[in-house]
Design a protein around this nucleic acid. Sequence first.
DNA 1: TGTACATCAGTGAACGCGCGTTCACTGATGTAC
DNA 2: TGTACATCAGTGAACGCGCGTTCACTGATGTAC
Lengths: 208, 208
Amino acid sequence: MSHTLGIRQAQKQKTRQSLLDAALGLLEEQSLSSLGLREVTRAVGVAPTAFYRHFRSTADLGVALVEEALSSLHPMIRTTVSAADDSDQRIKRAVELIARHVNAYPAHVRFIARERHGGVQPVRDAIRDQLARFGQEVKAELAKDPESAGWNEDDLLMLANLYVDQMLITASLFLEALEASPEERERVTQVAERQLRLISIGRHHWLD
Amino acid sequence: MSHTLGIRQAQKQKTRQSLLDAALGLLEEQSLSSLGLREVTRAVGVAPTAFYRHFRSTADLGVALVEEALSSLHPMIRTTVSAADDSDQRIKRAVELIARHVNAYPAHVRFIARERHGGVQPVRDAIRDQLARFGQEVKAELAKDPESAGWNEDDLLMLANLYVDQMLITASLFLEALEASPEERERVTQVAERQLRLISIGRHHWLD
DNA sequence: TGTACATCAGTGAACGCGCGTTCACTGATGTAC
DNA sequence: TGTACATCAGTGAACGCGCGTTCACTGATGTAC
């Protein structure tokens, strides 16, 4: 039998999640730095003081959002990088996966793009740490690829981080294009694919 | 004879610049989205109402800061991209110029990195427009290079934007490393150079 | 050069409002026996 | 199963404070003659 939470714990979790969801919604039009505790509780429909049962501050809530937003990225990254097709198909699939992710979790993507360089240090730190872990993860996947034969550790990590940053840039372009015309979204797709292709070519000839 | 401003106009300009400077300083630890008009005037030492003689809102001030921050980048970009050395020296020089720029104008760099995806739409729009102009500028410089023979317009712009984004990523890494050890800053330099080199290699073999 | 009037950058009081935080509380849930 | 007590998520009133904005103002600077 799986462990079941008590009624009290379950209800607390639910409220906590409501606070996170409400905050994420409110952050569509502002930065965490200006998000108010009362705003969030008002959106959920609980008393302002209830906030303190879950978070010490909005910065603390922000750190929790980082975990939530970036944990959904891990599986995607795996799938993106580890594919075994030929290079061109892999690129097309990677870009499509990014586009799908942005469509599925636009608020998460916006939050990460916005707060990565935002005004709340603990949140910046949390994002930096998570992205560093991503870099390591991508590096590990790259290392498995036969094309990585002869690459040293530093260069593999350098390439991995280049991919991670490129993924974020592409994601935020898709985010901007979310409500734009299909043509505009297709244009973003084309550019993203070609940028990845150029990087891929550079990778191919790195050891020449 | 050059046109001289009247005493009144000159004083007004001075106050305006003080407001911009004070705001930039305050934005080191928060986002524009939470910057208060009273905070800014307090830092300058003028009455809160004086603010309205210069800006309609903090968002409006933010747009002015975009112009200020990015206009200092134009000359740097020119110098960076147009150099006529061999590829490797060019890359080293570009990265060094970025590092110097971050050292000279850390608050400007922070502001652009932070507000590019920040919570204030008019400011995001202003940054996007300016960066698009940068892309065009870089594209024009790239087009002059013999290595661009055979490249179509779309691909040149794609590469130009890749360079612009890479510049911003590198700049924000240098910014993070500003107060770190010289070894850390050297590490950032190394990674930036290698990422640019990989892109450069990709560029070289693009038409293969 | 001097005078009379216009302009306008910056002032200071006042306003209503929402903020974060404290505190003692309530009542449903959990636990021990 | 039932009872007595402990826990604790969420409440609601209260607080002092700083916010953005309005308004009529002042006095130095600018302009016309």
